[in-house]
Design a binder for these strands. Structure first.
Lengths: 291, 291
DNA sequence: TGTAGAATGAAGTAAACCTACAACACATTA
DNA sequence: TAATGTGTTGTAGGTTTACTTCATTCTACA
């Protein structure tokens, strides 16, 4: 008997990830699916339409928006998603939890966020991102606030590959830097909401100068995605204090890009990495070791 | 979203169990299902009938013989049965992988690193860390190189809780800052190897001034752990270019600490968080939105 | 207020599922 | 050997379900 392809993921997270970009009636359908509705697997297209209060055509459009060509394709993944063997201690954290329990929950949430992000990853966009990055003359990595450390992380990885990149996490300096870019350059912008004013302005400016733009965001329906040539989406269960799990997924995305780039020319990557390590070791050596 | 009914089982075994009692045409259908046929999930009743060389009515009878009232009921269980979760593609990445495959592998590695780190997490040490952090008068967060972004991430979380903390990723400034610390203060040092000269020196200096030290490291046998009052270990499968997965785990650890601290006084945390958000929103507001 | 474009539902079509029944095969009995 | 009964199978047609198309409604913006 066939043993199959497959990957575990949570349809709920996928739906939540796309949620901001849904039309009103698609949101109605999404809401219905996000409710706890045990009979859902046995429902027909028309059933779902009736329960959601929309037409069956809208339910079908909802499926298409999620990337499925047919209702039954969606149904297959839905069935698999609802199957989900045990696990999932995806409870909310709460005040009564011991620190140990809290830690486990945060770890579990992080894992879930990465899984969900993996599930919504558009391989074509990812591939395109790698091509843009390796083809760019200059790369400007930007992000403000909590996106700043991710921007730095990305820089820390990319420059090791010999890429001509810069990181700028200051709102005003970002703007200045992007004013100097040309059409052969690339901007990578990291913004969880995709709606922060400063990165948007910077991105718009870069775009007006003909730059390509890669956006890493947790909001597929944001203004930022309008400017972006490539959008890489990170997903998490969005309950305020847990939005940070989405960050973890963005780090994972960053690392995936790094590996993808490194693999385009593995020998060169290893060589450059070696040079850097040698330089560091030398430094440690000359300064002597500490007791 | 609904979280299941039903248990995992193998449709193949069920079919084999009923096999002797099948009629000849039912056996034809059974044989078809028992073959290794990957496209089977997407087939219709008529497709299966054609492939098995029987009529669609016979396929339906086959389902009924297995106890299913309707073809689609059977299909649901079949889909579930063929769904074998994950399989852990923990292979090494290699040059021949497509970017999409690379991405999945990196994600899988990240998940694994978080799981491993969760597994080795010493709850007592974790709890102790939270107490030290919330009891400290001043907190200095340090890290150099690739540990820098993690240090910044930690700062970005902690200051939101009203903690009196600083981040310093410059080797010399770290040293200067630590020279000013007292015994009521705390140093949090992030170092993957635990053997980098500069953070070690800084930590030693802080320790000599009576500071407490929390170390986040991927190397439990390093010199750094000798100075540390609390050690939080991150783990990954250590193959050079994949060490970065360990970083992901360190971010997860950072977030776990943040949540742990926030939960000690949730109402205050939410309030401070709100103040920050209000300030940011106001900024966006005054700057107007961009088109 | 008018207009372009998006969003939506209604109606119709195609496909899939299911039922009912007729035909057949084979065994049993007269 | 013929008649009868039982169980198996396919066919034809009805019903449900999925999908397409298009007209209508809404919304944003001039």
């Amino acid at each position: 008997m066939a043993q199959i392809e497959s990957s575990v993921f949570d349809m709920g997270s996928v739906i939540r990830g796309y949620y901001p970009s849904f039309t009103p009636s698609e949101k109605k359908v999404a809401d219905f699916f996000l409710e706890d509705n045990p009979g859902i697997i046995r429902m027909t297209l028309a059933d779902v339409a009736a329960e959601s209060g929309v037409s069956d055509a809208s339910v079908l459009r909802f499926c298409r928006s999620l990337g499925y060509k047919r209702w039954l394709e969606f149904k297959i993944d839905l069935t698999r998603s609802l199957h989900r063997p045990s696990e999932q201690i995806l409870d909310e954290v709460n005040e009564k939890d011991s620190p140990g329990v809290l830690a486990k929950k945060v770890f579990q949430n992080s894992i879930q966020a990465i899984m969900d992000t993996r599930a919504v990853l558009d391989e074509e966009q990812f591939e395109r991102a790698i091509e843009l990055i390796s083809g760019a003359e200059k790369i400007l990595i930007i992000g403000v606030g909590t996106s700043g450390p991710i921007a730095h992380e990305m820089y820390n990885r990319f420059f090791r590959l010999g890429l001509n990149c810069k990181v700028q996490t200051d709102s005003y300096l970002q703007m200045m830097e992007s004013a100097l870019l040309s059409s052969r350059d690339l901007v990578i912008v990291i913004s969880q909401t995709g709606d922060s004013t400063d990165p948007l302005k910077t991105t718009a400016l870069a775009k007006s100068r003909g730059c390509c733009v890669i956006a890493i965001t947790g909001n597929s329906g944001s203004k930022l995605t309008d400017f972006a040539d490539v959008v890489l989406l990170s997903v998490s269960h969005e309950n305020r204090i847990e939005t940070i799990a989405s960050r973890i997924a963005q780090y994972a995305l960053t690392h995936a890009l790094f590996i993808g780039l490194a693999m385009r020319n593995i020998s060169e990557a290893v060589e450059k990495d070696q040079i850097i390590w040698d330089a560091i070791m030398e430094r440690n050596f000359f300064q002597g070791n500490i007791q």
